[in-house]
Nucleic acid binder design. Structure first.
Lengths: 114, 114
DNA sequence: TAAACATATGAACAATTATTCATATGTTCA
DNA sequence: TGAACATATGAATAATTGTTCATATGTTTA
């Protein structure tokens, strides 16, 4: 073995990296955001909203899910501040709350596409 | 109500958006990638590897998890092609496979930080 | 080669979560 | 106001998933 190469030193690495770990709370929040993206139904909903503001029944019909299922998932997306809603008559129209969603999904796409 | 504003038309919106939905397979892959990020243990592991190549026992000690738990999660990360590994003697050293990971987590961070 | 060390892995269990069903809330219009 | 429509929500169920435990695989060194 080539002794000029730097060998791995556990204690050193641990001492170096330990103080750099982010706060517990940040890690939890971060995982929670990605958890929201980690479901096909919600991903589908987001892809719908990329194109157009939509009411619950639109999404349900377009994706062939029950109204209830979509409503439950929209709540998750709303709690994560990924979508917002406004009322128009009897309907409630949902849309993306900002462009982070596009960027995050875009990056995920790039990874998936190799 | 202001009749000059464009009102929501369900059938129109559905017809417009339906053909734009990505393939089933892409949606599944996309959700799977984000699922991997949606767990604090794995997020922690990635933060470790942001800083330094590490062996399994390093990560286990640093994060105070069992060797087995870390090993299982490293496999998940590896299957998702987010980390790679190489052997050095008795140890196996893990590192990030590319910079998508940093970018994706960076975007998640930005969202979490409001 | 045997012992010690490092990692991987299968099975089992506990916890989380997505959907369905039934029903409640809220809005419009006759 | 009452009927019809649109959405939200609580409870229950089924499925997924993270960790532990026990053990297997693989490497080094005495």
């Amino acid at each position: 073995m080539n002794k000029t190469s730097v060998e791995h030193n556990c204690a050193e690495v641990i001492a170096e990296v330990k103080p750099l770990m982010p706060d517990e709370e940040i890690l939890l929040d971060l995982a929670d955001v990605f958890k929201v993206f980690g479901d096909t139904t919600r991903i589908r909903i987001l892809f719908c909203l990329f194109e157009h503001e939509m009411c619950v029944c639109d999404i349900a019909e377009l994706l062939d899910y029950s109204q209830s299922a979509i409503s439950h998932q929209l709540r998750v997306l709303k709690n994560a501040k990924l979508v917002t809603s406004r009322r128009e008559g009897k309907s409630i129209l949902y849309s993306l709350s900002d462009d982070h969603v596009r960027t995050i999904i875009g990056q995920g796409m790039e990874h998936v596409m190799e």
